[in-house]
């Protein structure tokens, strides 16, 4: 088992990662010497208070930001910039309003030079996977928030990445839709066998989806905390063990 995991694709190694921004002449360190190993096929949630740099960390992993120092290795190879083995799902669905659901989901593949018919075929598969089979001809403006985000997820999956990076993907959804979508993400992650890195401010979401939860320190340069979530899937939010994890995570933030 350990051997298979070590060989699994989508392994991320983060070494001494440091990033700061300059705003109005003031340098603000967001991440300081972060070290982390993400196993291939693992589901990792990143939580942290606002300003802890969780989104920045994800954007560096995506290649949308460059670190000031340190670096990221994927499957042992250092990465710079964007790459096809990674897909990003943003908080907003970011659909192109002039394309139908099918057009949007096929967009990533078409951009990567896939012939139109093959892109459409694979897009249809993922549209069904996210449960929107009847809506492939719909325009984005006709979709609810949850449906639009499903389209975004399908689009990210269609290019068959090794690593799926999610930046608070369910943050803008209502509570009920959010829970349904968490279950969907759990199912998709299990089916697609991708490495999932999820930035979230929802501790319950982190426990529901992650193998490990990474807590970023508020104080820069402080130690990161990793909490193993040892619960069978699909997880039961009302399971006493689930509730215990939630209490543990909340205490990390001084909450009760």
């Amino acid at each position: 088992m350990t051997l298979i995991q070590a060989q699994a694709k989508g392994e991320v190694t983060i070494r001494d990662l440091t990033k700061s921004f300059t705003i109005d002449g003031q340098t603000l360190t967001v991440l300081k010497k972060i070290n982390l190993d993400i196993r291939g096929g693992e589901s990792l949630a990143i939580v942290g208070a606002s300003g802890s740099g969780k989104t920045t960390l994800l954007r560096i992993l995506a290649g949308l930001e460059e670190p000031d120092a340190g670096g990221v290795l994927i499957d042992g190879a250092p990465v710079h910039g964007l790459g096809r083995e990674r897909s990003v799902i943003f908080q907003e669905p970011r659909l192109l309003p002039w394309l139908t659901v099918l057009g949007n989901v096929a967009f990533g593949l078409e951009v990567q030079g896939e012939p139109k018919s093959e892109a459409a075929e694979r897009a249809r598969h993922y549209i069904r996977l996210v449960g929107l089979g009847e809506f492939e001809g719909a325009w984005p403006r006709q979709l609810s928030g949850g449906m639009a985000q499903r389209v975004g997820i399908a689009r990210a999956l269609t290019v068959q990445p090794e690593i799926l990076l999610l930046d608070e993907p369910l943050g803008a959804l209502d509570a009920m839709t959010k829970m349904t979508m968490q279950e969907e993400l759990n199912r998709i992650w299990a089916e697609e066998k991708v490495t999932l890195v999820l930035v979230t401010h929802d501790l319950e979401e982190a426990i529901f989806l992650a193998d490990r939860v990474l807590v970023l320190p508020k104080a820069k340069g402080g130690a990161i905390r990793l909490i193993d979530i040892d619960l069978p899937r699909p997880r039961d939010r009302n399971d006493p063990a689930f509730v215990r994890y939630r209490r543990q995570l909340m205490s990390e933030f001084g909450l009760h």
């Binding site: 096809r84 990003v88 990533g108």
Partner: peptide
């Protein structure tokens, strides 16, 4: 930015 993440 979304298009760029797909390598556009």
């Amino acid at each position: 930015e979304m298009a760029r993440t797909f390598g556009a």
